[in-house]
């Protein structure tokens, strides 16, 4: 039995201590926004924050988390940086298939929290653990800079706030 602090709520889970946090979140807690991509800390799709630090949840045994606060993509928009990142992601229209984007946004938010005005080298260092098979990197870089400066970097999408995606 572990009591995890997930997105500000206590969740009691009855799972083995060596179970990676990724599967606890997805299959036990039921938060599926955090993605499985590789299982061996190669792709970053499973990135969540532990006390604000980005970690690969696919290799993080749940037994080692203790009291640390877990933040997932579902709640990152409640932080000021997360909100900025999500807005820039929309304005630049970063996503394609979207499967890697939870992890990208979690890594980018951690970067901006640490380094409010990241250089290209900072972006490379913080984001190179996140693979995007669709190849959205050019726009990810633009969106991170836009989130940092508030200034439009590339072509901006128009029509504000559509809510048209299928559920």
């Amino acid at each position: 039995m572990f009591v995890l602090r997930v997105n500000g709520e206590d969740r009691t889970v009855d799972v083995p201590a060596d179970m990676p946090l990724l599967w606890v979140l997805r299959d036990v807690v039921g938060l599926t926004g955090t993605k499985f991509g590789c299982g061996i800390a190669q792709c970053g799709a499973c990135t969540v924050h532990l006390d604000g630090q980005p970690i690969r949840s696919c290799v993080m045994p749940v037994g080692s988390i203790g009291q640390k606060a877990i933040t997932t993509i579902e709640a990152i928009g409640e932080t000021p940086e997360g909100q900025k990142v999500q807005k820039a992601w929309l304005d630049v229209d970063v996503v394609q298939c979207g499967y890697c984007q939870s992890g990208q946004i979690m890594s980018a938010t951690a970067l901006l929290t640490r380094t409010p005005n990241p250089s290209d080298a900072d972006i490379d260092a913080a984001m190179s653990g996140n693979i995007c098979r669709c190849g959205t990197y050019v726009r990810i870089r633009a969106a991170i800079k836009q989130a940092a400066t508030g200034k439009p970097e590339v072509m901006q999408t128009i029509v504000s706030g559509p809510a048209g995606g299928a559920p």
Partner: peptide, 24 residues
């Protein structure tokens, strides 16, 4: 002809989109 925002973006930046693997 206009660079309109994708209709599926909002859910994809909050983790709300349901992929096959997310089915419960």
């Amino acid at each position: 002809g206009k660079p309109l925002r994708r209709v599926d973006s909002p859910d994809k930046v909050t983790g709300a989109t349901q992929f096959g693997l997310d089915v419960r």
